[in-house]
């Protein structure tokens, strides 16, 4: 079911004359884990900011929704965009540190609750929360304050918060940053698991992780798309090799794809 969940056309983000994103077309399909890679300053995070309503842009972002069909997201407020099923995480995991894992997920599941429901005490956890807690492997930590979770667990909790909120387009900004080897494996499998009926986009620097788990890769450079395709297609693309000069064959010792021309970082 390779169906476009999100279609970005000719996105431009202008920071006082500097085009951080310069005419990007991007399609996110359900069923795919779509990696966005590129040197620092290529515009990956800015693109995510634009889609989620944090940065102003020109162009168009169309979301395919179950209820209303195609919806143009440009100009909508952040919380309205979120309610159309777009979820994002941040480079540094942002969870509610003073609340427990269960409370974090319960809040994330409840953006559609009526004021009346909000003003009452929670009687029991919603089924979606219980299921997602199982899926992200935090059932044992339900009553643990999120602030004392391990770094990787926070990242999983943040992904879980998008799942209970019924987001079907997930934009994850460096979800494995700071994770150990086993945690990366778990996260990669989790991403594929949740991508079966959702579109997942991952902004990432880690090339090994990308090669292991990407269904599709888009390379950004200086605010524009350099190449899109499978891992092999992209790694053999001459322009991509050129941009990653010095690691012309991207299997260099370093895991981090350090760009030759990251002047804009």
């Amino acid at each position: 079911m390779s169906q476009a969940a999100l279609t970005c056309a000719n996105i431009e983000v202008d920071f006082d004359g500097f085009k951080a994103v310069n005419g990007v077309d991007l399609t996110l399909d359900r069923g795919e884990v779509h990696f966005l890679i590129g040197p620092n300053g290529a515009g990956k995070t800015t693109l995510v900011d634009a889609i989620t309503g944090l940065a102003r842009y020109t162009g168009s972002v169309v979301k395919d929704t179950a209820e209303k069909g195609a919806v143009e997201l440009r100009g909508k407020k952040v919380h309205h965009i979120a309610r159309h099923g777009i979820g994002r995480t941040f480079q540094t995991a942002t969870v509610f540190e003073n609340l427990t894992v269960a409370q974090n997920l319960d809040i994330a599941a409840g953006s559609g609750r009526s004021p009346w429901a909000l003003l009452r005490r929670r009687k029991h956890l919603p089924d979606t929360v219980v299921n997602v807690m199982e899926q992200i492997g935090l059932t044992g930590q339900a009553a643990t304050p999120a602030g004392i979770l391990a770094h990787g667990q926070k990242q999983w909790l943040e992904i879980g918060m998008l799942l209970v909120g019924d987001a079907d387009v997930l934009l994850l900004d460096e979800p494995i940053a700071g994770m150990g080897h086993d945690e990366r494996e778990t996260t990669g499998r989790l991403l594929h698991d949740i991508a079966t009926d959702r579109a997942v986009a991952v902004v990432e620097h880690d090339m090994d992780f990308m090669r292991a788990f990407a269904s599709r890769v888009t390379v950004l450079h200086a605010g524009a798309v350099l190449a899109t395709g499978s891992v092999d297609e992209v790694s053999n693309h001459p322009r991509v090799q050129e941009v990653y000069l010095g690691t012309a064959h991207p299997t260099a010792p370093s895991n981090d794809m350090e760009p030759a021309d990251a002047a804009t970082a």
Binding site: H79, A82, G87, R88, F90, T94, F96, S111, G165
Partner: peptide, 10 residues
Amino acid sequence: DAEERVRFLG
């Protein structure tokens, strides 16, 4: 604690 996060949850 995290106003922006809440906004991104809808």
